[in-house]
């Protein structure tokens, strides 16, 4: 160096000379933000809800699902241990009552009329009542299966992604093995082994259904755990458990919720498919897929040459409407949560 720097190696507060900030009384605020303009803090979920509310198709979907669920709940009274919990009964008939036994004016495959708005099925049961009541099976299996698979898959994926290395390698190879088989085939095998029934169906869809969640969450966790706030939590002395549940999983939730919502529809279709194959609920149960199975032959030819379309159209339409509504909700949540933009980087700007 030709000339020595005039370094001021005196340490201490950085002083700005020639400008005494204490004496400046009038100055523009550093930002437009003031205590008054700062509205009440909105949490992430509140913001997502206000965005969701503006999404018309999502709201329609939510309304349809709510109505279907409410109709299912209030279709027939619910009694628990002999105590009537829910006394309302929207459905005019019991879904399993064979009407022509008590009322000779009713015959099988009666077309829709004012007393039977959706007609009568092949065993002489009121279709309207059965469709309302059938929602109890289809919808509840969808929600129960998704709740089980999503929570297990979430924990599984979080552990796999967080610890990495050998743990990750082994856990993901198990998932690969499950992915090697089509999901419906696996469910079929389980139902074939255990027989039909509500909880057998739940088990059939839950036992392997978590794998997708596991992989989804693992991918999210791999990217989230690189964030400095995870290292910060470790630097503060947080245990692995609290790092995972407090910092990692909440940040991995948006894609999980979106997938879970869409997955409810998939499970309902799967249950209906098994029912249609005669492997779901016991025959005669008012489950939408099983109802389709019972009236399968009417698709080809009815008893007197005419086709009783109401016997298949209404259960099929119920499945269609429910799954469609679920998908609309899922898309709405996807937009509201901005699942593609979960990185914290994008938030710097707002």
């Amino acid at each position: 160096m030709t000339k020595n720097r005039s370094t001021s190696t005196e340490r201490g507060r950085i002083q700005i000379s020639g400008f005494d900030s204490d004496h400046v009384t009038e100055r523009d605020p550093l930002s437009g933000w003031t205590e008054e303009s700062g509205r009440a803090t909105q949490s992430r979920w509140e913001r997502a809800w206000s965005r969701f509310k503006r999404n018309r198709s999502a709201i329609i979907g939510l309304a349809v699902v709510s109505i279907l669920a409410l109709l299912a709940v209030f279709s027939r009274p619910i009694t628990v241990y002999g105590l009537t919990v829910q006394p309302f009964s929207i459905a005019p008939y019991d879904p399993t009552t064979i009407l022509y036994l008590s009322d000779p004016t009713v015959s099988i495959y009666d077309s829709p009329s004012t007393s039977h708005p959706m007609g009568v099925d092949g065993s002489g049961r009121d279709l309207f009542s059965r469709i309302l009541y059938g929602g109890r099976y289809s919808i509840s299996i969808g929600f129960v299966v998704v709740a089980l698979t999503a929570s297990f898959g979430m924990v599984y994926g979080a552990i796999s992604g967080y610890y990495g290395g050998w743990v990750d390698e082994i856990m993901m190879r198990i998932v690969d093995t499950i992915f090697a088989f089509p999901g419906l085939i696996l469910a079929l095998i389980i139902v074939a082994i255990l027989g039909g029934g509500y909880w057998q169906l739940v088990l059939a869809f839950s036992l392997f259904g978590w794998a997708t969640y596991g992989r989804l969450i693992r991918g999210e966790v791999l990217s989230i755990k690189e964030n400095e706030y995870v290292l910060a939590a470790k630097a503060l002395g947080a245990r692995d458990r609290s790092v995972i549940f407090r910092h990692i999983i909440p940040n991995a939730m948006p894609p999980l919720i979106v997938y879970a919502t869409l997955n409810i529809g998939t499970v309902v279709i799967g249950v209906a498919a098994l029912g249609f194959l005669g492997l779901g609920m016991p025959p005669g149960t008012a489950e939408w897929g099983t109802m389709l199975d019972q009236t399968r032959e009417t698709l080809i030819q009815g008893p007197d040459g005419s086709i009783p379309w109401w016997a298949t159209i209404y259960p099929g339409a119920a499945i269609f409407i429910f799954v469609m509504a679920m998908n609309m909700i899922g898309d709405g949540i996807n937009d509201a949560l901005d699942a593609q933009q979960t990185g914290v980087g994008q938030e710097g700007g707002d």
Binding site: R44, N227, E228, Y229, A232, A235, G237, N251, G348
Partner: peptide
């Protein structure tokens, strides 16, 4: 850890957004 602490470089990724 109560005696030894760390301040991170990136103030955007070092705070949990949730």
């Amino acid at each position: 850890r109560t005696d030894l602490q760390y301040i991170f470089q990136d103030p955007f990724s070092s705070l949990n957004p949730r």
